[in-house]
Write a protein that binds this DNA or RNA. Structure first.
Length: 191
DNA sequence: GCGACAG
DNA sequence: ATCTTGTCGC
C-alpha cells in the first residue's frame, strides 16, 4: 500500500540535513518554521569518515553523522527533508527511508540528480512528471523554478508523494533547492 | 565484459 | 562531495 502520513499530518517545522566534506565530515541540520521559512533551530556535528561512498549505500556514509546532529536539536522536527533519494532508489530504500524509519519522523527525499528515467516536466514551476525505475513510478521530477532543472522527489517515511510534492513547493519559493537543504548546506560549510 | 552509479 | 573564473540573465 501507499506510504501514508499520520492522520492530520500538518507539519509546522521541517528539517534539512546535509553533510559537508573537509578534513572530517560535517553533518548539519537546520529546522525551519514552515510558515516563515526562518531557521528556528540547528545543530552541527563533526565526524570521521567511517564508510566509503558506494552508490546504493549512501546512507551508510552520511546518515550516522546526520542522526548525531538530529540528536542535538532542542525539539524534534515534524518532517525530515533529506538530501538524496527515498523510494527512488534501486532497492527502493534510499537515505530518506532510512532516516525516517530510524527516527520515527516522517521524511521525504529530494535529490539533485535522478536515478530513474523521466520526461522533462513543463517549464513552469510546479510542473512534474513521473520518475520511473524498473517500470515502477518511484517519485517525481518536479520543477521548483521556471526553466531550471527539476529536483527529484520521492517518498521517505509516512508521507505520500502528493504531500511530499506540496511540501517541496512550499520550501522553494525562490530557488531550485528547498530552503531546508540550502540552510543545512550553508551550515555544513561553517557559515 | 562494460558502463553507470544519490552525495 | 569538492576543485574553480568568468559570464549570461533576471
Amino acid at each position: 500500500m501507499e506510504p501514508r502520513p499520520p492522520a492530520g499530518f500538518a507539519p509546522r517545522t521541517a528539517a534539512g540535513l546535509d553533510v559537508g566534506y573537509g578534513e572530517r565530515l560535517t553533518a548539519a541540520v537546520c529546522v525551519l518554521d514552515l510558515a516563515t521559512l526562518d531557521v528556528v533551530d540547528q545543530a552541527v556535528v563533526q565526524a570521521d569518515e567511517s564508510f566509503p561512498y558506494v552508490p546504493g549505500l549512501f546512507a551508510f556514509r552520511e546518515l550516522p553523522p546526520q542522526l548525531a546532529a538530529l540528536g542535538r536539536l532542542d525539539t524534534p522536527p515534524d518532517v525530515l527533508v533529506c538530501d538524496g533519494q527515498g523510494l527512488a532508489h534501486p532497492r527502493r530504500f534510499g537515505l530518506a527511508c532510512h532516516a525516517g524509519v530510524l527516527t520515527g519522523i516522517p521524511s521525504i527525499g529530494v535529490g539533485k540528480t535522478a536515478l530513474g528515467e523521466f520526461e522533462p516536466p513543463g517549464p513552469r514551476r510546479g510542473a512534474w512528471t513521473p520518475l520511473v525505475d524498473g517500470g515502477e513510478v518511484v517519485g517525481r521530477a518536479l520543477r521548483t523554478r521556471a526553466g531550471v532543472k527539476p529536483v527529484f522527489v520521492s517518498t521517505g517515511h509516512l508521507v505520500d508523494l502528493d504531500t511530499a510534492t506540496d511540501l517541496v513547493l512550499r520550501l522553494t519559493p525562490r530557488y531550485r533547492l528547498p530552503e531546508t537543504t540550502r540552510q543545512a548546506d550553508r551550515l555544513s560549510r561553517g557559515r
